[in-house]
Design a protein around this nucleic acid. Sequence first.
DNA 1: TTGTAATTTATAATAATTCTAAACTTTATG
DNA 2: CATAAAGTTTAGAATTATTATAAATTACAA
Lengths: 142, 142
Amino acid sequence: MSKNNDFIEKLRSSGLRPTKQRLKICEALFDRDHTFHFTINDLAKNISEELKERISLATVYNTVHAFKTKGYLKEISINSDKSYFDTNTTNHHHFFDEDTNELIDCNEEVIETPKIKKNILGKKINSVEVLVKVATDNQNQK
Amino acid sequence: MSKNNDFIEKLRSSGLRPTKQRLKICEALFDRDHTFHFTINDLAKNISEELKERISLATVYNTVHAFKTKGYLKEISINSDKSYFDTNTTNHHHFFDEDTNELIDCNEEVIETPKIKKNILGKKINSVEVLVKVATDNQNQK
DNA sequence: TTGTAATTTATAATAATTCTAAACTTTATG
DNA sequence: CATAAAGTTTAGAATTATTATAAATTACAA
């Protein structure tokens, strides 16, 4: 349970009270070997089915937004009926498979972050994201 | 009204019947000096208020999706409660101003399209889009 | 002209998300 | 330790974009 103390520290250091619910959500999101993508529904389902905890859907929404604001999560810029989040907050890019609607991470070795030669006056660049849409190659169809 | 015949030809050539409604939507979208971004609501409002035509909202949805499928429109990959479309179907990128929620086009001279060094096996790359998020620079705040 | 397939339409259904206000928790302070 | 204020959780209602439905209308090939 040393992870738990880390989460308590992390939350406190950003002005969020370490409640039972938030710690459970930290466990679901950050006590993992790999980063991953999720929707609010995925997360709520994981908490109730795997971690056997009852957390109100409103709290899951609130917490994910709080974590996003604090920079613990990134919202993925993909147009969809639902919002997707990423526990990988480092600079990276995505492939989107239009056949399966699957989103695949890819690092700087595969797609180099493009240089921005001119910025909007008076603004700071917060992120540069590349989205590559792919689909089955149907070149031999009518 | 030579534009109108062009639209009729364009629609027919892609297997879409040139109905009154579709031609009006073509006028709203393509009879312009510049490309632009819009939501379904923007478009429906423009048609009823500027072009003084009553087209059912369902038809606007249907038509925009048909036009997207035929490649006459692009859907912008931005996470939002509504979908944004772009009449600029050429390869280009976007700045997103997080202060104002404004989306600004930018061409290849400002952001060079990144090279994709490795692709997903058996898939074809359909598009490569860069999104640069910017906001007011608050570096001198606590 | 006429039958069929495509299209439009109003309206209902769906689903993600946000709002609300009351109950409960956390925490700082006396 | 008691307590009050501020923060948090919660169920359920409200909102809103979008999709589905099915009947009426329109386009067009034969």
